[in-house]
Design a protein around this nucleic acid. Structure first.
Lengths: 245, 245
DNA sequence: GCCCGCCCGTTACATGGTGTTACAAAGAGA
DNA sequence: TCTCTTTGTAACACCATGTAACGGGCGGGC
């Protein structure tokens, strides 16, 4: 892939300059924009790989802009905001943002998330899936990606940790496909928009799978869903129904 | 596919109305029915894509109705019931229900299952997208490739290792055909999505066959199914019935 | 700031699957 | 029947994986 072209939509001049400089220093092309009109111009004049969008743009609402962009383009969007309540986060995701980051943010964290989103969209066909507000059903279980709620066939809500959720999501995106441990790690890095989890060591995935099994398998000793492929990795061995909301 | 037409068989008026309204809101055509007579009328008057069938219908037994329908039509059936014990579930499946859901149920979950069943039946209609989701029957045994379950004639589930399963699958795909050890190794490499098992050494297949025999032959000393072709290899010497799901 | 609890990776050990080896048993041919 | 070859079987060893226990790190509450 060529150098990523990132559109920085931010009305505060200082902030905008800071961001563009930072992005350029990190090997990307940063295109400054202040509002919806600018965005359109940039779209007309060339490829855009990602949009960094401030939620509060004086007059205009970032949320609305995000929603508009989404209707026309399939470009990844990261929302940036001083507001970080779940409420805000929700409305960001609900209009199709791929990630959401709160001000003030650590610059390196931002870079990591940008990388994650770019990687994700590059391979969205294979390992990963867009983070949409889908809900999944599998073997009587249901998982709502929006609320991260996991419901057992008996109707109980099961509490999974973040990492376990990310693992589950990775499997749900690749049912019936044997995944190597490396692929799973990649999947986790993409699903969680956390700073690149180096995670080089060996058995961590095994542990994680074990812990997920203990929570979602009826009989963890004889797993029905999270099956081991000896010498390969793991497979999610049940059908998954995805319901877009 | 056109809009799915779903027959809702439920004697409780409130429940029936609730269900039909919900289904209609989700893009399906819901046809209300209260008993077996209604069902027949609907079958005569048009296409039915799926039946949602309450187990407890006052006088009539849903199980019986299900069984009757199955004898005449090949329509998918989802049983709905307040009883969710495994006992009940079993008798539901044993008369041919495609799924079983317990009251009270989450409406979205129900919708997801409906979608799953409809997708499944659509898939089986088109020859192209057939995965190896077949189930096999041979000499009283059954093997479900989807769940990898092997059931003995007596009804016991037999646990086979991955390699043994792959071997069984290889034989099931080539009944009555003598296979050399090399051909079997190839078959295993195809069946298992494992890294090319070089498997150069000699006797491994013999061992594998031996182990499979010890699990599926009544008298492993005098094998009836996995017969040895001296100087050649092995044959799977019973008829196999393949049932696509 | 301190303490507590949770997440999660690490480590060490247990378990189990699978190929190898060795030897016994069964066939085939002389 | 004797002998050679092929196959069956049990014991073993190796390695991938399962699992329990530990501990560092981090965030929340006081």
């Amino acid at each position: 892939m060529s150098i990523p072209r990132i559109l920085v939509v931010e009305d505060d001049t200082e902030m905008r300059q800071m961001l563009t400089r930072y992005l350029q220093k990190h090997g990307t092309i940063a295109l400054p924009a202040t509002g919806e009109n600018d965005i359109k111009k940039h779209f007309d004049s060339g490829r855009i790989d990602l949009i960094l969008l401030d939620v509060m743009l004086g007059e205009e609402s970032g949320i609305e802009i995000c929603s508009n962009i989404r209707q026309e383009h399939n470009v990844p969007i990261i929302m940036v905001s001083a507001l970080s309540t779940d409420q805000q986060r929700m409305s960001g995701y609900s209009v199709g943002a791929d990630d959401y980051i709160a001000k003030p943010f650590n610059a390196d964290l931002l870079m990591a998330r940008i990388k994650a989103v770019l990687t994700r969209s590059r391979r969205s066909a294979s390992l990963t899936h867009r983070r949409r507000q889908s809900s999944y059903t599998f073997a009587g279980w249901s998982y709502d990606a929006r609320t991260s709620e996991v419901i057992s066939p008996a109707g109980y809500q099961v509490a999974l940790s973040q990492r376990e959720l990310a693992l589950l999501q990775t499997f749900l995106a690749n049912p019936h496909i044997p995944l190597t441990r490396e692929e799973i790690v990649e999947g986790l890095n993409v699903t969680e928009s956390a700073p690149e989890n180096s995670d080089v060591s060996g058995r961590a995935i095994d542990m994680l799978v074990g812990r997920l099994r203990s929570k979602v398998e009826t009989n963890p000793k004889r797993p029905q869903m999270l099956k081991t492929q000896r010498g390969v990795g793991y497979v999610f061995a049940v059908d998954v129904v995805v319901t877009d909301k």
